[in-house]
Amino acid sequence: MMQNKRVPGLIRDPAASQYCGQQEKTDVTIQPVISAKSLDLTFQTGDGPVHALRDVSLDINRGDFVSFIGPSGCGKTTFLRVMADLEQPTAGQITVNGTSPEEARRARAYGYVFQAAGLYPWRTIGGNIRLPLEIMGYDRADQDARVKRVMELVELGGFEKKYPWQLSGGMQQRASIARALAFDADILLMDEPFGALDEIVRDHLNEQLLKLWDRTNKTICFVTHSIPEAVYLSTKIVVMSPRPGRITDVIDSPLPRARPLEIRDSPEFIEIAHRVRDGLRAGHAYDD
């Protein structure tokens, strides 16, 4: 919409144009997929207001793999939920694909992976992955083809007829990722998807996720509280800290796109991990 050159400014959302305006004059391809400006979000609770987000600004470009890392209460999940239109900011602006999060959600612009796989126990794995396709009204043949394709993408081929309880936790989480991929959203929002899994399974899934990102060229926002996971996966690491939830550091990773697991022993990897750790410590200083 924003890139409509013939009738500039006519069909634009005024709030969005406010700060996307300058970018229109430059190259449209570098317009961020997600752009947050001075986001505030305050929850009113019985114990008084909780500042989940304070003055959060961030641009995420197409094809980025962005990790959000920080201790609990730093607002990383809240930020992700704001992108997904599951929470409403109390101040500031955010655009997703150049539109409001609500419009992006209605346009099914993103797939969301929750911490728990949340598969329906009464549906087979195939049936679970089919769920968004049924809701979005894809025809039966298209559904079949898509389910088959994404199941292969997450290496679950042959498990279509199995029920969730017949699969391990890691496989269930892979199925939930396949479910988020099935309808070809460009953006993948992942909220600690591997948080409940053991180290070995997590390593394996991290590797698979990188391959998948490389193949599909999606923009991925990934919430985690594991430093190695954040450094291993990301092109951009956003360090956050709590009370109020805010961004304390944004690190652009110099690591190449192709990342074997061994890269974690390289000096560059260790250096970035150090910087993340320092950022986390700085955010926590007043606690000690």
Binding site: A84, R108, Y110, Y112, F114, G118, L131, I135
Partner: peptide, 17 residues
């Protein structure tokens, strides 16, 4: 669970769905 309803919201599912 709440997350289940959130998931359907991300699909922009109707109340009836």
């Amino acid at each position: 669970a709440h997350a289940q309803l959130d998931l359907l919201k991300t699909y922009n599912a109707s109340g009836f769905q």
